[in-house]
Design a protein around this nucleic acid. Structure first.
Lengths: 240, 240
DNA sequence: TTTCATAAATTGGTCGACCAGTTATTGGAT
DNA sequence: ATCCAATAACTGGTCGACCAATTTATGAAA
């Protein structure tokens, strides 16, 4: 494909000051100078020590806080909350560069999350959750029969199934993955042609398996449903 | 347990200004005033409109950026990157309150991610990845035989397996879930007694299945290995 | 010497101002 | 009227200063 090599080039990301500070802090932690429960030097001290503004230091702390490494106590200090951070040395970097999610990984992960969600949803279904799924399916059916764009409604059906697992973490992970999925779909217009009609049929099949509490069949039908996407991926990506 | 009720109380988090702004922005998006690709009002404008400092606006944007909803173009503006966000109305809130990850969901999700990772790792194994896993297993073995705390080394082994899937997204999700897992383990000292010895044996078993490329057995042995945790969860959580 | 109220120093939280790029406007040359 | 360079306006990036809460130091009373 044209410009294919560019993919290999744009990784030369200019290391933002915040990332440099993160490395520094990580270094302090993994070198044992900072153990779990220890208080970090004050933001001011670090900003002076590192020769950058305090904003950068705060940004770095925010990120590490998000990943659960640090914990900020207002007007008091910042402490190391992670407890086994040492072993994670080197992995933090990868997480920071989450940007480069390649599409294959994305789709594979989605399939993984969704097939298992269908399974769990079938075993754990509540009337409330079922109603929610049915509602989403109706909206999708309307859109398809009207010939309108139905990507959003499609996705909503899938999300409702994940929601039916009653597993908040699973739903959160799915939410993290979703924007990129959406982006790809609309860009590539996968849902053109008469695909929506067969997809609609498959949706009904999945729902009925969940309603019947047949976890294995629910999982299997979800996998079949998503296999179309997998196939699409394989036929279109020549790399790797 | 003592102070048990406190857990139910401290959820009354004071809604930080940044979260209020996030709700506002979400409102703008879901009400259609902001569509995918649109530019957001400038930070200054929003800070004035919302009556708070620009810092809060920036914080809100950062968070939404992390979740993939927004994309910031330096010196130019911030745009809505998600494309079907409208349908996600109401779900974003859940993601933002990821704090309340209940432990059951956490463990269930971990089991899901890891069993499937073991499966994929067995089908996709590379010599490089195997070496990495073996190295981690050795470190764990050392620690166990020395009778030292081995939580970190234990987790490292598991992470290396996820890494062996060569799926960056999967690894990222695992990294998001990991800090809480770690925190729980050290707090509750699950790995006391002679558990590490049997765990070590199970680790070897998992590795050998991956080495043999037997995906089903790898998955099954991983599930058995993690079932201990699941059981622990069930016997110790009376709530819900 | 010990105790405890008070004060001083330090902390993270918040803000407005300035900086260097980007984008829109303008106005003269064609 | 059209085009395009110069410029003005605006953007997110960065910084240092101030704020309120916390922590530590102080010193007089017991």
């Amino acid at each position: 494909m044209k410009n294919g090599f560019i993919t290999n080039l744009k990784e030369i990301v200019v290391e933002t000051p915040a990332d440099k500070i993160i490395k520094q802090i990580r270094g302090l932690i993994s070198s044992g100078q900072l153990k779990a429960g220890d208080r970090l030097p004050s933001e001011r001290m670090m900003s002076e020590r590192f020769g950058v503004g305090r904003t950068y230091v705060r940004d770095a702390i925010r990120k590490l806080e998000f990943y659960g490494i640090l914990k900020t106590l207002p007007q008091s200090g910042t402490v190391v909350s992670g407890l086994g951070i040492t072993a994670l040395e080197g992995l933090i970097t990868d997480v920071l560069q989450l940007n480069e999610k390649d599409f294959n990984s994305l789709v594979e992960t989605r399939v993984l999350l969704e097939t298992n969600s269908a399974y769990i949803a079938a075993t754990r279904r509540s009337e409330e959750a079922l109603i929610s799924i049915r509602k989403a399916l109706n909206a999708y059916e309307m859109a398809v029969l009207d010939g309108k764009q139905s990507v959003e409604e499609d996705l909503m059906f899938h999300l409702k199934i994940v929601e039916a697992t009653n597993n908040s973490v699973l739903l959160s992970l799915m939410m993290i993955v979703t924007p990129d999925i959406l982006s790809f779909f609309t860009q590539n217009k996968v849902c053109s042609g008469n695909r929506p009609l067969s997809a609609l049929k498959e949706h009904h099949e999945i729902l009925s398996h969940i309603e019947n509490g047949d976890a294995d069949k629910a999982k299997e039908s979800m996998r079949n449903h998503l296999d179309d996407i997998l196939n699409f991926k394989i036929t279109n990506s020549s790399s790797q």
